[in-house]
Design a protein around this nucleic acid. Structure first.
Length: 410
DNA sequence: AATTCAAGCAACCGCAGATCG
DNA sequence: GCGATCTGCGGTTGCTTGAAT
């Protein structure tokens, strides 16, 4: 605001929308579809520019928008995806189909960014602000490699996603005059099933590689392994229309030991509701629908990812060879180091938020798992710092592992 | 009760890529 | 191949609201 008008036409109204305007726009789109946004205002009898109408529709009037407070799962998803994708809000929004990119962006800027900063994590790089603490082991190198590969991969997949969206749009619009990305979202009453172009499954190259390395040949946990992450882009449209995945973790898992390592529990994300736990997952369950399940000792791909990410390898710097990625014999111990990580991750976030009433910084790195022996009170702040960082990246990796196929990235 | 300040959010702007003629 | 137009995205602005003083 305060800048020059985006539209050349003078006399166009700006600023907040009135209920009457909303009604006009809504009624017109429901009847005719938006068509050309530029032409829409005149046809709908609105003194707005097309851009403003599109924004109002996309961010507010669209029937499939979920408003209100973000759930913990949504927060996690945003943070994790942001770690992988950066400020690609639209891409992130595809993982939260009922949220708009604008809403997610605002929420990030007003809540999550500050919360991460408070935790000592750079909201931009998602790395600890002081890398010195990690500089003497291999972890920072692993993290750096991971970050670089993720960035590269996300860029590539964004391009793929664009292609998919386009072909999807074309297919849909052939049958549906209302068809558009907005109309192909899950709960829209205007939605018709989108046609999707056939094609071979596509997946993150990273995940392919990891899958090959980590997944047992006869692993029947296809849904939880990279097979799930190796979701086909073909399934993208279907996923958007049946978001049925949920995060799962070991509810019965023992709490982390005092040093955060030792107890056996493997957290991973499980997709439910779709056949064979395949990659057809969609969005997270909504608030209050947490359905954490525990499966201990599952030798899943996730385990490998976690291990890869957090295992400190002092002897090998060539991070991405199959051998270096292979789990060490005691991998489960490493994995369990991230055990219950979702909970811990959430705790970290919540504890540093206002609602948690327990500032992460107040404790100078204190974890809030309620275990005094595991807090910074032990004096080993750097150790806790490492643990938190491990868990942070583990959670991101697990999201990658379980990411629904409708993602433009996965 | 009045004022100040900060947080949250809706909306705008410019840019870049895609599409069309 | 090229230019004009359209659309979508990300960054930013400024209004509103609620808390603090």
């Amino acid at each position: 605001m305060g800048r020059s008008p985006c539209c050349d036409k003078v006399g166009l109204k700006k600023g907040p929308w009135t209920p009457e305007e909303d009604q006009k726009l809504l009624a017109y789109i429901e009847e005719h579809g938006h068509g050309s946004w530029r032409a829409l205002p005149a046809k709908a009898g609105l003194q707005r520019c097309g851009k403003s109408c599109r924004l109002r529709w996309t961010n507010y009037l669209r029937p499939d928008i979920k408003r209100g407070k973000f759930s913990i799962q949504e927060e996690q998803t945003i943070i994790q995806l942001h770690a992988l994708l950066g400020n690609r809000w639209s891409a992130i929004a595809t993982h939260l189909p009922k949220r708009t990119d604008n809403e997610i962006k605002n929420y990030w800027n007003t809540h999550l960014k500050k919360r991460l900063a408070k935790m000592g994590i750079d909201p931009v790089t998602h790395k600890p602000k002081t890398d010195a603490i990690l500089s003497n082991d291999g972890q920072s190198k692993h993290a750096a490699n991971l970050s670089h590969m993720a960035q590269w991969e996300s860029a590539r997949l964004e391009a793929e996603a664009r292609l998919v969206r386009q072909s999807k749009l074309r297919s849909s619009s052939f049958h549906n005059p209302l068809a558009s990305p907005e109309f192909s979202s899950p709960s829209s009453p205007l939605t018709k099933p989108a046609l999707v172009p056939p094609g071979p499954p596509r997946c993150l190259d990273i995940l392919k590689a990891w899958n090959g390395v980590w997944t047992k040949p006869n692993d029947d946990q296809a849904g939880t392994s990279a097979g799930g992450a190796a979701a086909s882009v073909t399934g993208l449209a279907g996923d958007l229309e049946s978001p049925t995945s949920t995060l799962s973790y070991s509810e019965n898992a023992p709490q982390m030991s005092s040093n955060g390592i030792g107890d056996s529990s493997t957290a991973y994300i499980e997709f439910v509701g779709n056949s064979s736990g395949s990659c057809e997952g969609g969005m997270m369950k909504e608030e209050g629908e947490e359905d954490w399940k525990g499966i201990d000792n599952s030798m899943s791909f996730t385990s490998g990812l976690q291990d890869m990410a957090i295992t400190v390898d002092n002897t090998h710097n060539s991070a991405w060879t199959g051998e270096s990625l292979r789990p060490s014999p005691d991998s489960h111990q490493h994995v369990s180091g991230g055990g219950n990580f979702v909970e811990r991750f959430t705790d970290l976030l919540l504890s540093s938020s206002g609602g948690g009433d327990r500032s992460f910084c107040e404790g100078c790195g204190e974890s809030d798992n309620g275990d005094a022996s595991g807090s910074a009170g032990s004096g080993d702040a750097s150790h806790d710092y490492l643990e938190d960082n491990k868990n942070y990246w583990n959670s991101i990796l697990n999201l990658v592992d379980s990411s629904p196929s409708d993602s433009p990235m996965f």
